[in-house]
Each structure stands twice: as structure tokens, then as C-alpha cells.
Amino acid sequence: MRTGIISIVGAGPGDPELITVKALRRIQNADVILYDRLVNEELLGFARPEALRIYCGKAPGRHSMPQEATEHLMVEHAAMGKHVVRLKGGDPLVFGRGGEEALTAAAAGIPYEIIPGMTSAIGAAASAGIPLTHRGIAASFAVVTGSRCREHGAPVDWAALARGVDTLVIYMGMANLGEIRAQLIQSGKSAATPVALIENGTTALERTVTGTLGTIDKLAAVMKISNPALIVIGEVVNVREQLLGLQQTVRAQIG
């Protein structure tokens, strides 16, 4: 029996049109697709009708399938000669556990490939009109997780991030937003620093709420921001406000 292949594929930040051509071709050729919660299900419509579709999504505090079980299925189907697509939201190597899955495939002797995707930090911020770097305002940005599993080592060094990075982009941070805010302010970040919360970035349900670091957790509660949501902290958030202001001026002139 021939050995199959595992394609670890990034599906992009939510808008199905933001997937890469190469990723779309892998979906079209797949025998088995194991897909995550943040994958836009419209993409599954490009798969062959006979392709097996297996949901293995993970929500905060709710895993439909343990990671070990997902990796077992991935290897099991590939060992049967199937082309397995492990379809993941954003980029598979940015908080996507794609590295772990590649190691599992390699350890099992299964050929694999990694197809990059647009990560949410890039896609959602751009969709909301926020440049992560901007001349004269921000020359650096960091992408960081707002929730760290206890077994995965030391906590995030918020003090170093507060001092050394112009723009912070935080994934999976809504549940700990109050603690993150407190840690950054305690580390010297001004409470007046602009913050944006981008909910369902790049999709038709996208919603962006802006405020300041000092009150963003209270604003998030009032506005009922829910996952998936991205947190952007830095002066670049003000560029969005400038763009919106200019758009309003243009509309008024046209009207």
C-alpha cells in the first residue's frame, strides 16, 4: 500500500477569499480534511464530495477532540495512503500547533508539507484599518498568546513586552484581559495607550471596539466582545481613527 501525505494548511484569518491558491488546491485534492473551529466552512465546499470531513475544533475551555486524537487520525489516514489536509485557521505555525503535528508526521515516517496562511494578526488588523508598523509611530510588533497552558513553561514576560515593543498583538487574551491590562500598566505601559479589540476579523461579522489600556477590560464587558477576538495595543490604533475621520470627510464632500 502506498504511503499518503499530510498537508498542514493555513486557511487564513476568516474571509475565505484570503486563502492562498496553493492551500485551496490542497483542499480540492484532499481525501481527508481535519479542520478547526476558526476555519471558514465555505472552504470545505471546494473539496471533492467524497472527501471525508472531520471536525476537530477547539474553543476556550471546550475541545471537541484532544490534540493527541487529532494527530492519531491524521497519521492513521495518511498511513492508509490518503492525502490528509490538516486545515487550520490563520497560519499553522502561529499558535496553531502545526509544528507539533509536523513532528508527529515525521516521527511516524509520513511525508508532510506545511502550507502557510495569513495569520490573524496581519489579516484582522489590516481589515480593521490598523497598520502594525507605521512610519514615525511603530517600528516593531510582537505577536503573543494571552493564555498559556500551565504545562508549557514560564508565563509571558509582559514587562519586557511593555518596554521593548511598539505594537502588541494578543491572541486568545479576552479571558485574561483584565490581568493583561494590569500587568502592562504595572510594567510601565501608559494607561492612555490606545487599544483595539477586533472580533471576527475579516468576516462579515467583524466588529472593532477601540479604547485605552486603562479601561479596555470594562469596555469589552459593556460591548460584549466575544471570541474569536484579537487585541491590538499601541499608538498605531490611532491611525484607524485618522482613516475613519478622513473617510467621513470624503463622504460629506461627496454627499
Rank of each mutant, 00 (worst) to 15 (best):
A128K: 01
A106R: 03
G10W: 09
A106Y: 00
A121V: 12
G164Y: 08
V232K: 08
S187R: 08
A252D: 14
L43I: 10
L197P: 14
L213I: 15
V84I: 10
I225A: 09
A221G: 07
R163C: 10
L244H: 03
R207Q: 15
Q242G: 00
I122F: 00
M1Q: 10
A159Q: 06
G123Q: 06
P194H: 08
C56P: 05
A221T: 13
V195P: 13
M118R: 01
G90M: 05
Q28K: 15
V209L: 13
I114H: 00
T20V: 09
E113R: 06
R25N: 09
P228H: 06
R163W: 08
K189V: 15
A139H: 14
T208F: 03
A191F: 14
V39C: 01
D36F: 07
D91T: 11
L213Q: 12
L161R: 11
Q248M: 04
E100A: 04
P155L: 13
G211F: 03
A59V: 07
H63S: 11
D166Q: 12
L230S: 05
L219H: 08
A59H: 06
G146W: 14
M74E: 05
A139K: 15
G201E: 02
V239P: 02
N176S: 14
A126G: 13
A126C: 14
S64Q: 11
V85W: 13
A175Q: 14
T70R: 07
A252L: 06
W158H: 14
G89D: 04
A108V: 01
P228N: 09
R207G: 14
D217L: 05
A107P: 00
I185K: 07
Q253W: 13
A192T: 15
L103V: 03
H134R: 15
H83A: 04
T208Q: 12
P13T: 07
A196D: 07
W158R: 06
Q248A: 08
E50G: 02
N238R: 08
T70L: 11
F141P: 15
A69H: 09
D157C: 02
L184D: 12
N29P: 00
S64P: 11
E101P: 00
F46N: 09
V232M: 13
G117H: 02
L93D: 11
M65L: 07
T20Q: 04
E17M: 03
A126N: 09
G164A: 10
E241Q: 13
H152G: 04
T249E: 08
C56I: 07
I54R: 01
P194M: 12
L44M: 05
P131A: 07
M65D: 02
K88W: 06
P60F: 01
F95I: 08
A78T: 05
A47N: 02
L205Q: 12
A128Q: 04
Q248Y: 04
I27T: 04
F141S: 14
L34Y: 00
G129T: 12
R207M: 11
I216F: 01
R163V: 12
R26A: 09
M118A: 01
A47H: 03
T119K: 01
E100R: 01
T133W: 02
V250S: 11
E100L: 04
P155I: 13
G129H: 10
S187I: 06
R207L: 11
S187H: 05
A128M: 10
D36H: 05
D157L: 01
Q242T: 03
I216M: 11
T249M: 05
